[in-house]
Design a protein around this nucleic acid. Sequence first.
DNA 1: GATGAATGAGAGTTCATTCAT
DNA 2: AATGAATGAACTCTCATTCAT
Lengths: 196, 196, 196, 196
Amino acid sequence: MTTAAPERRRELLATAAEVFAAQGYNATTVRKIADAAGMLAGSLYYHFDSKESMLDEILSTFLTELWEGYDAVLAAGLGPRATIGALVTESFREIDRHRAAVAIYQRESRHLVDLPRFGYLADSQRRFEKAWLGTLERGVADGTFRADLDVRLTYRFVRDTVWVAASWYRPGGQHSPEEIARQYLSMVLDGIAVRD
Amino acid sequence: MTTAAPERRRELLATAAEVFAAQGYNATTVRKIADAAGMLAGSLYYHFDSKESMLDEILSTFLTELWEGYDAVLAAGLGPRATIGALVTESFREIDRHRAAVAIYQRESRHLVDLPRFGYLADSQRRFEKAWLGTLERGVADGTFRADLDVRLTYRFVRDTVWVAASWYRPGGQHSPEEIARQYLSMVLDGIAVRD
Amino acid sequence: MTTAAPERRRELLATAAEVFAAQGYNATTVRKIADAAGMLAGSLYYHFDSKESMLDEILSTFLTELWEGYDAVLAAGLGPRATIGALVTESFREIDRHRAAVAIYQRESRHLVDLPRFGYLADSQRRFEKAWLGTLERGVADGTFRADLDVRLTYRFVRDTVWVAASWYRPGGQHSPEEIARQYLSMVLDGIAVRD
Amino acid sequence: MTTAAPERRRELLATAAEVFAAQGYNATTVRKIADAAGMLAGSLYYHFDSKESMLDEILSTFLTELWEGYDAVLAAGLGPRATIGALVTESFREIDRHRAAVAIYQRESRHLVDLPRFGYLADSQRRFEKAWLGTLERGVADGTFRADLDVRLTYRFVRDTVWVAASWYRPGGQHSPEEIARQYLSMVLDGIAVRD
DNA sequence: GATGAATGAGAGTTCATTCAT
DNA sequence: AATGAATGAACTCTCATTCAT
């Protein structure tokens, strides 16, 4: 069941992800997903064990791809400023590719972490914090970033702003992910105030 | 039914708000609220018409108070930079006072807007956008803020970062709302990079 | 929930037991039980956690009472023949009192033993075998029962015949439990053939 | 569909019978049967019209063979004691040959009798009762069996004990059907108590 | 003000069955 | 002969809500 006809599976997961993102996981009934996929509710169970396993597959697929990108950035040995830049750009690219999954992640991960099945969310969060916080701290240490900022607070602001963009971003809109990343980095790195 | 013992009412709403914020509105059963309040599910209906009406009262109370604060700031006739500063500070104060309501608002408002009963959410969003976007635009016009930024994008980033803080902020923690506001403003206005 | 209004609970369990006995546990829908009880299916869940917990309570209540009777017999210190007689009589009394539960036990216990929740069924079976087999062996040892019989085989025959009676026995019919016990004992102890 | 490859058909029915016997007809899904047969659920429908028709074929095949044996015994013109002996022996031989079918019959026949399709079960039960009860009555009349027994009760006990053996009998175990029959007859005819 | 019991709509899921390939 | 995908009815269970007491 896992290997056969992976295209149909992917289609159905994409459909489910859209509905989850639009209505929330709890408010999404299996019937709504089936409607969107043009089949009956029971038919989904030929492809998936449960509603939860659809969610699981959506999130784990997304996180796997996200970490491929992040790991490449982190392995490149860039300086703090370039690393932050690359992480932000990569993040907006992931939002571009997995908008629905990111939106679902944002909304549901806090509750899901408690379920054993979604333990990998906690792992991912830890790695995420380590990557961002570590880069910020390196930047403070080498004089790239201001020393008078609370690094932990800064991390939270940066993290949230990047990902919350999934809630309004529409792929194919007027801003490319790279353009959004550039604007965002300009704001966060240099500030919105005009320099004296 | 609406007039009797307004304190009990407020207590129950505070309880409900905590549970809604912790578990999400849909995932919160009336029974959980009743458990938290030390009564049986049916008993809540002596105080409130429905689960939805509790949510309504929580959100409208919050927004009413929020706009009292915002309107005072906007009426003060401050310059763009001071206005942004005052709005941010006021926002973190609201988060401090209505953490649960803000978290609920963040998570549920997108879906609620479509319900006639929650039409005031859309009104509030419009006023909100007008206040922030207007201030940013005034600041660009008078040279306070950089002209090369996409104002609309900047507005979205600022708006989201401020409010998403409700998801991790804990009243009584190590940071006062004013301290958080100062750090946040420092980051957004001046950037995190050291100036050459 | 467990202590309040125990009469209603007992009524509902009696109803459920009748339906389980008549149609089999699997084939019994919660709706059928509710119909028989004059309520809607969902209402049963105010009283019980699940269909399975109804079954559990039916069987454990029955076994508890059964063992009260058996233990009294076993503690009386009777000889093998009298013990067998008393156990048989007690068994038919239990069938008279818990006909439905016995029928359910007969039909479902083999599958239920595997579920952790019904582990007590296995315990009971072991005690049961020990009581009957031990008495038969004592009787063979002291010359009460024939030495040329396979005791284990005899135990199985006796055990099954007694309990399978639940499938045709109707309380209030023409035979009292004591009368059936007497006939049954006469057959098993002395045989149906006329003695030469 | 019915005529092609009768061996495969028999194999599949044997497989289905094992699963029905082990798990119960209702609890047996068509998928479980297909798994055990090494095919997919839908494929079974090439061979059989429905799950019920498999059950039907299993039971009717068994009963046909059973009655061949019984009829031979009844036609032999033996005395009551020898007839009972031959019927018991024949019954245990049937259990040896059709253990699964007998177990299914024991568990399901009560419910199936009501379905028109399984009307032959009722016929068989009537013939069965006539054969056994008639033999017992003949035996009482000619002084072979004790006159003080309730014949109907005795019939029930004998009938049930014989067939319920299918629930614990394992072909190829330490007791041959003939050995079990001998032990059983010894118990029922002469009793387990030592004669004074 | 609160309880206990019930309602009824709808949720996720299962499963016998169908059918084009 | 067998597969893969789908159907549709029915199932167990949940939950917001009602209401007599």
